[in-house]
């Protein structure tokens, strides 16, 4: 059981490392947010599962942590991306489609 839990924790650490590498390699804010915030989901879940296997009495608390991460992490990353778009962060030139432009053209027009 101890070995299983260490393997799960290692998988978690591996995904954190991928997330860090992704932040370094990705070309713009939005792609970086993708790589950086996603790693915390599978990385953290795997890490928490590993801890839970080792210390079964902590499972309720770990469950609570998992729920809070699942609720707050995506809200945070959406807000960051939205704020980034509004403040005119440069967008990677390989970006294929931009349906957001029309929405914000309308909204910004209303703001003035």
């Amino acid at each position: 059981m101890i070995i299983v839990s260490y393997i799960l924790m290692l998988i978690g650490a591996f995904f954190y490392a991928i997330g860090g590498l992704g932040i370094y390699r990705m070309p713009d804010l939005f792609n970086r947010a993708q790589a950086g915030t996603k790693a915390t989901t599978l990385g953290t879940l795997s890490l928490l599962l590993g801890v839970g296997v080792q210390q079964p009495s902590w499972i309720p608390k770990l469950l609570l942590i998992a729920v809070f991460i699942a609720v707050t992490n995506p809200v945070g990353s959406s807000t960051l991306a939205r704020a980034g778009y509004h403040s005119g962060v440069p967008i990677y030139e390989g970006t294929q489609v931009d349906d957001l432009k029309e929405l914000y053209k309308k909204e910004d027009g209303l703001d003035e």
């Binding site: 939005f30 792609n31 947010a33 993708q34 790589a35 915030t37 996603k38 989901t41 599978l42 699942a70 609720v71 992490n73 995506p74 809200v75 990353s77 959406s78 991306a81 939205r82 778009y85 294929q96 489609v97 349906d99 957001l100 929405l103």
Partner: peptide, 27 residues
């Protein structure tokens, strides 16, 4: 929106009445 954001490759950015606006890493 949270589910879309938590599954990697897609990130919800904004929404209106009947749509969500999503940043997608591989369109």
């Amino acid at each position: 929106a949270n589910s879309i954001t938590l599954t990697p490759g897609t990130l919800s950015v904004d929404g209106d009445e009947n749509h969500l606006y999503v940043h997608w890493i591989d369109v």
